[in-house]
């Protein structure tokens, strides 16, 4: 991590993990960056996930997050498709 960015850990769930081919990873986002900025970085590294973005759900920790939500250093973000319990 350099002074111009912060590291955000992302975990993929369900078939997003299969599309990415990996369980997750660390992504660099500028300080003050948002969930939307993070999704840009994820789409760039994992192009197969990019088409899923309109339906993707995002959580910071164990709470749902919105695209404009500002991320904090050390945030753990989860990215997953619509849920299907029951």
């Amino acid at each position: 991590m350099n002074r111009e960015s912060m590291t955000i850990t992302v975990q993929f769930w369900s078939y997003f993990r299969e599309l990415a081919g990996i369980h997750g990873g660390d992504f660099e986002v500028v300080p003050g960056g948002t969930v939307s900025d993070l999704l840009d970085a994820v789409s760039l590294r994992h192009p197969d996930l990019a088409p899923m973005r309109p339906c993707a759900l995002v959580a910071v920790g164990v709470e749902y997050a919105f695209p404009e939500q500002v991320l904090q250093p050390g945030d753990e973000v989860s990215l997953f498709p619509p849920v299907q319990g029951g």
Binding site: W13, S14, L57, Y64, S78, F80, V83, Q84, G86
Partner: peptide
């Protein structure tokens, strides 16, 4: 509760 579970609880099925 069932309806909302299917909307917000992160569980998936294959």
């Amino acid at each position: 509760i069932l309806d909302e579970m299917k909307r917000v609880v992160p569980i998936w099925k294959r």
